[in-house]
């Protein structure tokens, strides 16, 4: 129960203007928690596909992801804040992806 209240506190501070007054109701909390669990589960399962590149890297990646999840939980509020409609943010990620693609495809293949 203690964990649940902590979680609700975090959610209130993210999704509400005033933590005291804002009502974060049960259905919202549960959907955020389920989103969190789905995110963790599917990222961990997706990390297993790294075995096609190299098995050792997969083990490192999965263990690293597990440790990461332990320390940064809850992720959804952070993701929600990061994944917003701000133009500067979008442009930053677009250019970052462009740079990654350029580097991977020019130097990384063969």
């Amino acid at each position: 129960m203690n964990m649940y209240e902590k979680l609700v506190q975090t959610l209130k501070s993210t999704f509400g203007q005033d933590p005291e007054k804002t009502l974060v109701n049960g259905s919202k909390t549960s959907s955020i928690v389920s989103a969190e669990l789905v995110l963790m589960a599917s990222v961990l399962v997706a990390a297993l596909t790294i075995r096609l590149v190299s098995p050792a890297l997969m083990i490192v990646a999965v263990i690293g992801l597990m440790l990461l999840f332990m320390y940064v939980t809850p992720i959804m509020p952070k993701l929600y804040k990061e994944h917003n409609d701000d133009f500067n943010n979008m442009m930053f990620y677009a250019v970052l992806t462009l740079a990654i693609f350029a580097i991977v495809f020019y130097w990384g293949v063969f």
Binding site: F15, G16, Q17, T22, N84, D85, D86, F87, N88
Partner: peptide
């Protein structure tokens, strides 16, 4: 200014 025009402040207020 792009930071004033193209941000998500309006949407955020609506959500809250």
């Amino acid at each position: 200014s792009a930071t004033a025009l193209l941000n998500d402040k309006k949407l955020g207020e609506e959500n809250n």
